[in-house]
């Protein structure tokens, strides 16, 4: 936000004085379309199902906390949130560690086949991940990994690697050669250089790839749907889907459950918006 008293160029231009109110009107309309359904779901969770049926577009009257309390105390919400967190954190850790190692080599070593290896990884960006889901299920079944966290974590790490390497490589190669030489003179090997200098310097990029991996994993549906048959292991997206198809008549309950399930993503996004947007922008520029 522009806190500085300097007038912004567009608002000071004389011929377009009318345009600032118009900008606000349009921006408000766009924002309303984007979040009205979300607000509706959250507010709807404070109504009762009869209220909703009688007047689908009305406000809560009176406000009831029962739906939210019910979801938080009775359903499997907490177990599912825990599963989602474990899987998302495992995925993030795996992607960052494997991605950094590979991107480091691709950025700072010169060797035959380096560009070939890079192309090999970037090919994964063209790969339609969804298409491989059936054979992936069969393979995980043969490996006895079905109904375990690994069945979700390992493939998610694999599918996230190409984007991670594409984002990290330019960051790691942007650090000047002189720093590496200086580190070598001070007695640090290449790996010491990576650990003590390169990684601290590229923390923004690491946060970006970490956030992207976390959000992708937190929202994932198809893979968990196939490989996590055991209800004990269900993640939040599976939980929301099951709840909504089991209690079809409990509209208010579904609204409350859906609100609570999207709350972590919304909070996370508000805090990490810069990283998410920055990461996507970085991917575009790369």
């Amino acid at each position: 936000m522009a806190v500085h008293p300097v007038p912004s160029p567009s608002s000071s231009g004389r011929p377009i004085a009318w345009s600032t109110p118009l900008t606000y009107v349009l921006a408000l309309a766009v924002a309303a379309v984007s979040i009205a359904p979300v607000v509706y779901v959250i507010v709807g969770g404070f109504r009762t199902t009869p209220q909703i049926i009688a007047d689908p577009a009305g406000l809560p009257d009176p406000w009831v906390w029962d739906n939210y309390a019910r979801v938080l105390t009775q359903s499997d919400f907490w177990q599912q949130a825990f599963n989602s967190a474990v899987i998302a954190l495992g995925t993030t850790l795996g992607v960052v560690v494997l991605g950094v190692c590979a991107a480091f080599v691709l950025a700072r070593y010169t060797f035959r086949g380096r560009e070939g290896l890079y192309t090999f990884f970037t090919l994964g960006l063209l790969f339609p991940a969804g298409a491989a889901i059936l054979p992936l299920y069969l393979m995980l079944r043969d490996l006895n990994l079905i109904n375990s966290y690994y069945a979700v974590i390992l493939p998610q790490v694999a599918f996230q690697l190409p984007l991670t390497i594409v984002i990290l490589r330019p960051f790691l190669s942007a650090v000047p050669r002189e720093l590496e030489d200086a580190a070598a003179i001070d007695g640090a090997g290449r790996l010491g250089f990576l650990w003590r200098i390169l990684l601290p310097l590229s923390r923004p990029a690491l946060v970006t790839v970490g956030v992207l991996a976390f959000v992708a994993s937190w929202n994932a549906f198809l893979l968990p749907l196939l490989v996590l048959g055991d209800a004990e292991l269900h993640t939040l997206p599976l939980g929301v889907q099951n709840f909504s198809s089991q209690y079809t008549s409990d509209t208010a309950g579904i609204l409350a459950f859906t609100s609570l399930a999207m709350l972590p993503a919304l909070l996370f996004f508000t805090f990490a918006e810069k990283q998410i947007v920055g990461g996507l922008q970085g991917a575009v520029k790369g």
Partner: peptide, 12 residues
């Protein structure tokens, strides 16, 4: 606000 729908899970 405009980015919100993109961040929500597809299931949601």
């Amino acid at each position: 606000l405009v980015f919100v729908p993109y961040v929500l899970a597809e299931v949601t």
